[in-house]
């Protein structure tokens, strides 16, 4: 039995009449790097956003440490601190400088002291190579730099799982590399990561498992050597043909 950090059972999500996720079953175990792939509108981002409840699932269960967090009595905010989220559009707090972006959550949510928060923030800013820029405001940074700070901000909360929602999709091509490099490093260090991405080469390299989604369902999943090289399903094959061209 694998050590599942997050387990999703029969998850459904609809926006009005539109079903975006249908009976999704899926889990992430400790230290695993999972990439979610699929075409736009396949529901992979929605799945990721459902996991940290930025979208409210219409049905199903999300089990974290043996508890269903969709239970009404469950403390959603407490749960969210265990998940680090990295957005496509970075979403750094515009009113704070780089350091404060990585500190404010630790201080206000985790109630850590200022000194401890800053020390911890610096540690992760160094990992992503942004420790020089502690005094800069988000508006003064490039896209790649912003995303690296956003990764440090998420890491500084010491989450159990890192969620990445198309972290390189809003970046200029020459900046994609620096962000992927940081993510590769995190993967090697044994962080549990769930990544929605269109970067097939990167997915192939870093992931332990690839999950292919189409039209709101998981079509197939398995190690990259199997899903990306010798997929079982026609839909996967067609998707790969289109993207790997």
């Amino acid at each position: 039995m694998m050590d599942n950090v997050i387990e999703i059972k029969h998850l459904n999500k609809s926006f009005g009449n539109h079903e975006v996720l249908r009976d999704v079953n899926f889990s992430v175990s400790k230290g695993e790097v999972v990439c979610l792939i699929g075409s736009s509108g396949s529901g992979k981002s929605t799945l990721l956003r459902c996991i940290n409840l930025l979208e409210t699932p219409s049905g199903g269960e999300i089990i974290y440490n043996g508890e269903n967090i969709l239970d009404k009595k469950h403390d959603v905010r407490q749960y969210r601190t265990h998940l680090g989220m990295v957005f496509q559009n970075f979403n750094l707090f515009n009113n704070h400088n780089v350091l404060k972006n990585c500190v404010v959550g630790q201080q206000k949510v985790l109630k850590r002291s200022k000194a401890e928060s800053e020390q911890n923030a610096l540690k992760y800013l160094e990992i992503v190579g942004m420790d020089k820029y502690v005094n800069a405001k988000p508006s003064q940074l490039s896209g790649g730099q912003k995303q690296r700070v956003a990764i440090a901000r998420a890491l500084a909360m010491n989450p159990e799982v890192m969620l990445f929602d198309e972290p390189t999709s809003a970046l200029d091509p020459e900046m994609v590399g620096e962000v992927l490099k940081v993510m590769r490093k995190l993967a090697e260090e044994g962080n549990t990561m769930l990544i929605v991405t269109h970067e097939m080469e990167f997915a192939k390299e870093v992931s332990d498992r690839i999950v292919f989604m189409d039209k709101g369902v998981i079509v197939e999943e398995g190690p990259p050597s199997q899903v990306l090289v010798d997929p079982k399903h026609n839909r996967t094959r067609e998707f790969l043909k289109r993207t790997l061209k």
């Binding site: 940290n52 930025l54 905010r77 407490q78 969210r80 601190t81 998940l83 989220m85 957005f87 979403n91 750094l92 707090f93 959550g105 206000k108 949510v109 985790l110 956003a150 901000r153 998420a154 909360m157």
Partner: peptide, 9 residues
Amino acid sequence: EAAEAIGMS
């Protein structure tokens, strides 16, 4: 969303 995602009320 970013604030919510780190657990802020």
